Amino acid sequence: MPTHHSLDYVEFTVRDLAEAKRFYADAFGWAFTDYGPTYAGIQGAEREVGGMEQTEAPRASGGGALAILYSDDLEASLEAVEASGGTVSKAIFSFPGGRRFHFLDPSGNELAVWTLA
């Protein structure tokens, strides 16, 4: 079970999903679960620990990984982010298995927070 406000999931943006899967499988032995033509989950020893999303352009923050935290109370976490000086960059939305929002920290780094459905 995820732990409140712990680092829970990391997403990478990639230009070619098939090539990225090949590279990480070859280099590190990673296994994947495909969720359509543009997304694959990264399987850890006991559960999914990350994912890769194929995009034509990097994230607005300049690309790279997206750190995703878990929350027991998504709305309270959103309020805490805003109260602490963060900026919500993507309002709460649903996805298969849960809901999440994205935010920018005061330095402009993008992170996300999710909860179970």
Score class of each variant (00 low, 15 high):
Ala45Thr: 04
Thr38His: 09
Ser71Glu: 06
Lys21Pro: 05
Gly29Phe: 00
Gln54Thr: 03
Ala18Lys: 10
Phe95Ser: 01
Trp30Asn: 08
Leu7Ala: 11
Phe103Ser: 11
Phe93Ile: 02
Ser61Cys: 06
Phe93Thr: 03
Asn109Thr: 13
Ala65His: 09
Ala76Cys: 05
Ala112Leu: 03
Gly36Glu: 07
Ala27Asn: 13
Thr13Cys: 11
Glu11Ala: 12
Ala27His: 10
Val14His: 14
Trp30Lys: 00
Met1Ala: 10
Thr33Tyr: 00
Asp34Tyr: 00
Ala18Val: 13
Ser71Asp: 07
Tyr9Asp: 05
Gly64Ile: 04
Arg47Val: 02
Glu56Cys: 03
Gln54Tyr: 06
His102Val: 08
Ala57Arg: 05
Thr87Met: 05
Asp34Gln: 02
Lys90Ile: 07
Pro37Ile: 01
Leu69Met: 13
Lys21Leu: 14
Phe93Gly: 01
Ser6Glu: 15
Leu7Phe: 11
Phe93Ser: 06
Ser84Arg: 12
Gly29Trp: 02
Leu104Asp: 14
Tyr24Cys: 03
Gln43Met: 15
His4Asn: 13
Asp26Val: 13
Gly98His: 04
Leu104His: 14
Lys90Val: 13
Ile42Tyr: 08
Phe12Ala: 10
Ala18Cys: 09
Ala65Trp: 13
Ala65Cys: 10
Ser84Tyr: 04
Ile92Trp: 00
Ala57Asn: 02
Ser107Glu: 15
Ser94Arg: 12
Ala57Asp: 08
Ala20Arg: 03
Pro96Arg: 06
Asp73His: 01
Ala67Trp: 08
Tyr24Gln: 00
Val10Ala: 15
Arg15Val: 09
Pro37Met: 03
Asp26Asn: 14
Ser6Cys: 10
Trp30Val: 02
Ala40Pro: 14
Ala27Leu: 14
Glu82Tyr: 04
Glu53Met: 10
Ala67Cys: 12
Val113Ile: 15
Glu11Ser: 14
Phe12Ile: 04
Ser94Leu: 07
Tyr39Lys: 01
Gly51Leu: 02
His4Gly: 05
Gly63Asn: 01
Met1Arg: 12
Thr55Ile: 05
Ala117Gln: 06
Thr3Cys: 09
Ser84Val: 00
Thr55Pro: 09
Glu110Gly: 02
His102Ser: 08
Asp72Lys: 00
Gly86Asn: 02
Phe101Arg: 03
Ser77Gly: 11
Met52Cys: 06
Ala31Pro: 05
Pro37His: 00
Ala40Gln: 10
Ala112Thr: 08
Ala60Pro: 02
Trp114Pro: 03
Ala20Lys: 03
Tyr35Gln: 05
Gly108Val: 07
Phe101Ala: 04
Phe12Asp: 01
Val49Ile: 15
Tyr24Met: 01
Ser71Ala: 15
Phe23Ile: 10
Asp73Trp: 06
Ala60Lys: 12
Ala60Met: 04
Phe23Leu: 09
Ile42Thr: 09
Arg99Ala: 00
Thr38Leu: 08
Pro37Lys: 02
Ile68Asn: 12
Ala40Trp: 10
Ala20Val: 04
